[in-house]
Design a protein around this nucleic acid. Structure first.
Lengths: 136, 136
DNA sequence: ATATATTTGCAACATTATTGCATTTGAAAT
DNA sequence: ATTTCAAATGCAATAATGTTGCAAATATAT
């Protein structure tokens, strides 16, 4: 699916910043931070526009935000509209800083206190990825 | 154990900011943000001192940091020096914003790609706590 | 009581994120 | 093609959060 089709499907206008962000995300199979997304064209769009666009895309569920334990934030396409399991798992490599989505590959169970309701679960696994493990 | 004993045990000087932060944490059974900790005495210590103190206490393992999905940060005492299982689970109430430590009450399994090494797992469950569920 | 490494406060700065408002633009209707 | 208008963008200002360097104050070992 092209970026234009994707935006049309979600009833969003086909604007420059949206096309750029989604284009960059489609090119990568890992999650990217604001600065990583901007790398090739740092000043193509105003920072405010970038924030607002990320927020819009997130609200529509086209992308999702991953907050890591060091407070840094990355974004990735949500490629899973069918299986809506409320469990969001990501792997964060401590060496190269890459973040990988792990959906479908993790299982989680919790015994909550009486009366507590669980809506969503966010999991971040910190570790070392295969590439960094070899080269160390 | 008193705050003074705790600090001595960890080979840290018995200073004002440390005593204050640990004192506030001992009073509460939920995790607290910088602003929540400071609530009763907002200007008792400089902000920089507060940050540095939190960092020191965290490095020594006396407290731990919880980063929520909205980028906010809370801190809580690490009351679990014996069971060192690398799984850090917390519940975050969407209504009252309280954060509860859930250690020992959660189970997690992940099937990582070949060659990946898992070091630590951070879990944040978003939901509604018992108190907020009743009063809604 | 003294010595000294550590802690603290202050000033400055960096990064990340938000708000209001005027201008521009996508795309629907004519 | 042109018009229209809500939506998107850029700019300026501001807020919140976190860091660094350095001088002054202080905890504690001697």
């Amino acid at each position: 699916m092209t970026v234009e089709e994707l935006l049309h499907k979600y009833d969003l206008k086909n604007t420059g910043c949206r096309k750029f962000i989604l284009g960059e995300m489609l090119k990568s199979d890992t999650a990217q931070s604001e600065n990583e997304l901007k790398e090739s064209y740092p000043d193509l769009f105003d920072r405010v526009t970038f924030y607002r666009t990320l927020k819009t895309l997130e609200e529509r569920g086209i992308i999702h935000k991953i907050v890591l334990n060091d407070n840094s934030v990355k974004y990735a396409l949500s490629r899973h509209h069918h299986e809506d399991n409320h469990l969001h798992s990501h792997f964060h490599c401590e060496k190269c800083d890459e973040v990988l989505c792990l959906r479908g590959k993790t299982q989680f169970e919790a015994e909550l206190p009486q009366g507590f309701i669980m809506n969503e679960v966010f999991v971040v696994i910190e570790g070392v990825c295969a590439g960094c493990g070899i080269h160390s």
